[in-house]
Nucleic acid binder design. Structure first.
Lengths: 253, 253
DNA sequence: GTCTATAAACAGATAGAC
DNA sequence: GTCTATCTGTTTATAGAC
């Protein structure tokens, strides 16, 4: 039955009884963003992890400061308060993801120059890159958790994330998809289809507890990630091919 | 027992946090589960709403008791404490969803008697029913939020939800899908595919902020829900057809 | 069963020494 | 910039009246 249980008896809440031997500033999985070992960077790394894990209300400033190995008062000093730290975490994520996934900039003219097959390949490659980032990279796990939580319960931080990170990438995905199927990239159907196809990836992040339990897995290691992406890629190719065929049949009639 | 569910009159949000003139026990959208106007039921209704909205830590017992229109001490009296109320909310959800969506029981023998087309139709119908429940029904919005939150941060409550609700239904979906494509219903590929295809629905629940912003919508009303399900259904049919074709080609070679 | 009153622990923010 | 100490309000849980 393999039900992943983080904390069987009661919620951890007060968290670790003992002081962490290694401050978060030295954990390798977060070393790639918010670089530096100064107080500010350490707080952002710990904030992304704990805000993502426990939510804005569930993560206490004391907990974050302890994980970062710095003093609590540093949060007020560097960010003005808890909300300021949360916003700074969102901005750091936008920068980190932009650096890691790439994809941008892809000007309209470049997409327009692709034929349907090339656009399909570009779309598939983009979804795979996003999937490998969201599901595979250990240092991105906390980032993904933070972003999903902002999606479900948007704060002022979400607005910044949406404008600088989510919207530009979603628009490019829609342009590639529309080029592959021959549709209007701003049409409702294309935006819905791209969102739905991306949801396939998202399930293994948000519904990971269900996926792992059903598959009898404890983690998603590289070969398992390959298996997931193979299925998702096949579904995307099927959707695009079927959609293009239906559309060309429609215009022929 | 199947309870006739009247379609919800389109209505805004649940009780506002500040000074609710009407206690949650009288709001119609939650009246279908945790029936009764007693303290216990009112607390469960308010708990599902506020735990789902703010998380276990973010929802305070004071807030829940106020929304339920009952005294705070009733939580300790009826459920032993905050954790007990959380678990009771999960159990109430399992019962509610089971009554509403139906689908169970579908014995193995019934699935085995379906041909590929009938299995495809049954699978599509099941995903649509789930989608209409998760995205369309106003009284299920709080239920869906609660379940997604448990997925992301599983507690003891998740174990109960998984065993009594999620796993049985996921298994049936896998049997239907496998029957439609000619695969083994317990194979890794089938479990992954069913999970990924369901993720298409989940995106519009979890990533609703992104979806609404990209589509310029403020809510998902019935025609918009139809548009979403039409796209998702088309993707599912394409995936099944392509998969079945690939498999038969494989066995032929 | 439901209420008031309160206990004990925790939250975020800040003043001021260094 | 970083620290200690503390203020003020809120949290869950409980004791005891009715």
């Amino acid at each position: 039955m393999l039900v992943p249980m983080i904390d069987p008896p009661a919620r951890p809440r007060a968290a670790s009884p003992a002081a962490p031997a290694v401050p978060a500033s030295q954990t390798p999985q977060l070393a790639a963003f918010a670089r530096g070992d100064d107080t500010r960077s350490a707080l952002i790394r710990a904030g992304i992890d704990l805000f993502g894990r426990n939510g804005f209300d569930g993560a206490s400033t004391r907990e974050i400061a302890r994980a970062a190995g710095v003093n609590i008062a540093g949060i007020a000093y560097h960010f003005g308060g808890k909300s300021g730290l949360h916003l700074a975490c969102g901005e750091a994520i936008a920068g980190f993801v932009a650096e890691t996934i790439g994809l941008l900039p892809v000007p309209e003219t470049v997409v327009a120059g692709l034929d349907a097959e090339a656009a399909t390949e570009a779309f598939v490659a983009a979804v795979n890159a996003l999937g490998r980032f969201m599901l595979g990279r250990a240092e991105a796990e906390s980032v993904a958790r933070f972003m999903v939580r902002e999606q479900m319960d948007p704060s002022a931080t979400f607005a910044a994330l949406y404008e600088t990170l989510i919207r530009p990438r979603h628009e490019i995905m829609c342009r590639l998809f529309a080029r592959a199927t021959g549709e209007d990239p701003t049409s409702e159907a294309v935006i819905i289809a791209v969102s739905a196809l991306f949801g396939q990836i998202m399930f293994f992040r948000v519904g990971r507890a269900t996926a792992l339990a059903r598959l009898g897995w404890e983690v998603i290691d590289p070969p398992r990630l390959d298996a997931i992406l193979a299925v998702v890629t096949a579904n995307i190719r099927a959707a695009i091919a079927t959609r293009r065929a239906a559309l060309s049949g429609e215009t022929r009639s």
